[in-house]
Design a protein around this nucleic acid. Structure first.
Length: 115
DNA sequence: CGTTTTTGACCGGCGC
DNA sequence: GCGCCGGTCAAAAACG
């Protein structure tokens, strides 16, 4: 459980938002994200601190089972031990479903800015 | 055109 | 059993 001041912090993985709910404690909504790799069922929730909105609590759930080759340097040191993946040059977006290693993520990273 | 975000509905566990 | 609470689904919109 790490705290960060940036809400959409890129930690080297691609996240897909699948829900947002307001919790009782904080008046601010909490976001539910899931890793966009098929073989990697890592979930994380992002919640704001009620007193200080500049602080964001990110709660990770599960462990990544695939390598990461994002061009963005992982800002969280614990992700650095993962190996780098070979570069993939041509891939159809539909192939992402078949992506078992999550190697296609970094090329998808070029096609999207942020969300 | 394909993928992600959005957003309300839906579901399951728990306490009463 | 019912309602609250937290987590997920899914359809449509939004985005590049």
């Amino acid at each position: 459980m790490t705290r960060t001041e940036i809400d959409h912090l890129d930690d080297g993985y691609r996240w897909r938002k699948y829900g947002q709910k307001a919790v009782k404690n904080s008046h601010f909504p909490r976001g539910y994200y899931k890793c966009t790799s098929a073989s990697c069922n890592v979930k994380k929730r992002i919640e704001r601190c009620m007193s200080d909105p500049s602080y964001v609590v990110t709660t990770y759930e599960g462990q990544h089972t695939h390598p990461v080759n994002s061009n963005s340097t992982p800002l969280i040191p614990s992700f650095n031990h993962l190996q780098t993946a070979p570069t993939i040059t041509n891939t159809s977006p539909a192939m992402l479903k078949l992506d078992q290693g999550g190697l296609l993520q970094d090329m998808m990273f070029y096609h999207q800015q942020h969300h």
